[in-house]
Design a protein around this nucleic acid. Structure first.
Lengths: 218, 218
DNA sequence: ACCTGAACACCGTTCAAGT
DNA sequence: ACCTGAACACCGTTCAAGT
């Protein structure tokens, strides 16, 4: 026995979980409807009873991937910058947990299909700093774009390192996880710093109670 | 006569420019090797004399798209934040100039193939603020990820609006260019603000000469 | 409710051979 | 130097029909 192709008749959940396994084991380019069907011991056409098309399947995978993101144990004493950092880090970890996870989420988030919960969590974290809704929404999308772009890049390099393909000639850096994490934290800190600065600008003195803070210029 | 399928025998440049035209007219999913060959009045296999594979073709397109980005007329009196904002805006315009431009650049930038010049221009702008090389490099990648993510999203919505596909039910906002531009500027300002704050932190008083500024924590 | 079988309309890429 | 022709090994999706 090679997998979970046990007793015929599958559920939507089976299909999604098997797809996640293929994704993680072989990567997004190898996640085809025909390969997925074969893993389920079924004809490709059978998949269309569970999902109307591949796009919808991928959106479901995106939801599951970000849905597995840990809720940062913020404790009681977490201020808003740490909440934002915590959500960003949890999201990064969730994306890294599946091969090509960032690309799956990015491709469906762009369509407004998946990744919505991810943005909402980031948004809530920003709003806890007392920023108005539009500022929080925009900051959250900026954060999300950075996170998805960074982790996509990170995962692409992982594949290249394992395949041994070097594009730029040179012996391109072998992708140190410590470096990646530091570069990630730097980007998040830049955005958080920008928010901090927004707050300071709108409340020059006594700038420490989390009230409503207006956006810069409209 | 329908296009540029004139007198046989094409150059690499022909192929790339025709590909750009198909990209702009029909979008990335319709830019197939076979379609491109047909537009050139040639067999698909002929394209492989000019480019080793589709990936390389796309990298070439990415280079041409970002290569067409205007050099912001910064004048003499431009400070570093305006230089950064100017480069980011020029890059956005360049991506918007071709349908699916952001996705093309993003897909190849992730592979370390295309988009390198874009990053370098952003990096130079940041460095003009007196930041050290690693800070400038990291800030530039953060900016690039945001720009690519934002414009990809923007262009995806453009397609959906024109096709009339609404994912989230609701009558999803019809993508106001003014709003998009404002959200873009907000994101860039957040990153620029973060850099500003980095500088202020390392030079608490008399913080206005552009010297070397060290990165926060390593 | 869940799947088969067969088909439709495609893909990217390779390679011997032509001019 | 640049291209043809034919093939290889695939794709996603539809649809009548089966159980």
């Amino acid at each position: 026995m090679t997998g979970n192709e046990s007793a015929r008749r599958h559920t939507r959940d089976d299909v999604a979980e098997t797809a996640l396994r293929i994704l993680d084991d072989y990567g997004l380019p190898d996640l085809t409807m025909r390969r997925l069907a074969a893993a389920l011991d079924v004809q490709a056409s059978a998949l269309y009873w569970h999902f109307p098309n591949k796009q919808t399947l991928l959106a479901e995978l995106a939801d599951r991937i970000v849905g597995r993101a840990a809720v940062p144990a913020a404790g009681a004493g977490a201020d808003w910058p740490d909440r934002v950092r915590g959500e960003a880090a949890a999201l990064r970890d969730a994306l890294l947990a599946y091969r090509d996870g960032a690309e799956v989420v990015a491709s469906t988030a762009a369509l407004g299909l998946g990744g919505a919960p991810a943005q909402q969590r980031l948004e809530a974290a920003v709003r806890s700093g007392g920023f108005d809704d539009e500022t929080a929404a925009r900051a959250a999308t900026a954060l999300l774009h950075f996170v998805l772009g960074h982790v996509s890049h990170e995962q692409q390099r992982m594949q290249f390192d394992s395949i041994g393909v070097l594009a730029t000639g040179e012996a391109a850096d072998p992708l140190d996880e410590t470096d990646s994490a530091a570069a990630f934290a730097f980007g998040v800190d830049l955005l958080v710093g920008g928010l901090h600065r927004l707050r300071d600008a709108s409340a020059p003195a006594a700038a420490d109670r989390p009230e409503e803070i207006s956006r810069s210029r409209t």
